Each structure stands twice: as C-alpha cells, then as structure tokens.
Amino acid sequence: MPTWATWCRKAHLQGNKREKECAPREEWDIVSGTHEPIITMEQFEQVQQIRSQRREKYRETVEKREILYRT
C-alpha cells in the first residue's frame, strides 16, 4: 500500500508569491495503506529509473555546454 506524508501545512501570500510553511521532518504525518494505489510499485520504480537516467543525461549536457562556453 502507498504511503502518504504531510509536511507543508500552511500556504500564505508573501508579496506576489505564495509561500509554504513546512514542518521539520520529525513532525511529518506519515500514514500507510490509506488508499488504493493508482500505479503498481513496479511501475513507480520504472518511472523513477527513467527520470534518473534523464536527469543524468541533462546534467552531462549542461556540463558539456559549460565547458564549451568557458573557453
């Protein structure tokens, strides 16, 4: 069953921006098994792996660009 965590309890306007007031990790409300999952854990892990690969590829591209434009 999925786990649900609540850590940002309040949102308020600060000028033109909406600011969140987040609790420290020790104060988070963590509840498991409260609802049926939309996707399976296997699907979730596959997506996380794809995201990780894309993130790494993006970082490599940014590093290459920085090297090219430094010289």
Rank of each mutant, 00 (worst) to 15 (best):
R9I: 06
R9T: 12
R9G: 12
K10N: 09
K10D: 11
K10P: 09
K10V: 04
K10L: 10
K10I: 09
A11V: 08
A11Y: 14
A11P: 03
H12F: 11
H12R: 09
H12L: 11
H12S: 15
Q14T: 11
G15P: 14
G15T: 05
N16R: 10
N16V: 07
N16P: 06
N16Y: 09
N16A: 14
N16L: 11
N16M: 10
N16H: 08
K17F: 14
K17P: 01
K17D: 09
K17N: 06
K17Y: 09
R18Y: 04
R18K: 14
R18I: 13
R18S: 08
E19L: 10
E19Y: 05
E19K: 13
E19A: 11
E19T: 07
E19P: 01
K20L: 13
E21R: 04
E21M: 08
A23D: 15
A23W: 15
A23E: 14
P24A: 06
P24S: 04
P24N: 09
P24W: 08
R25I: 13
R25A: 15
E26L: 07
E27N: 14
E27P: 05
E27A: 14
E27H: 12
W28D: 03
W28E: 05
W28L: 03
W28P: 04
W28T: 01
W28K: 05
W28Q: 05
D29S: 14
D29M: 05
D29R: 15
D29N: 10
D29H: 11
I30P: 00
I30W: 06
I30N: 05
I30C: 09
I30T: 12
V31E: 01
V31Y: 03
S32H: 03
S32K: 08
S32M: 09
S32F: 00
S32G: 02
S32P: 03
G33E: 05
G33I: 05
G33P: 04
G33V: 05
G33C: 12
T34M: 07
T34K: 02
T34A: 03
T34S: 01
T34C: 09
T34L: 01
H35T: 00
H35E: 04
H35V: 02
H35W: 01
H35D: 00
H35C: 02
H35G: 00
E36Q: 06
E36W: 12
P37N: 02
P37L: 02
P37K: 09
I38K: 02
I38V: 04
I38S: 07
I38M: 00
I38N: 02
I39K: 02
I39S: 00
I39F: 01
I39M: 02
T40Y: 00
T40F: 00
T40W: 00
T40D: 00
T40M: 00
T40G: 01
T40E: 00
M41G: 04
M41V: 07
M41I: 05
M41R: 06
Q43L: 02
Q43G: 06
Q43T: 13
Q43A: 03
Q43V: 02
F44W: 10
F44I: 01
F44D: 06
F44K: 07
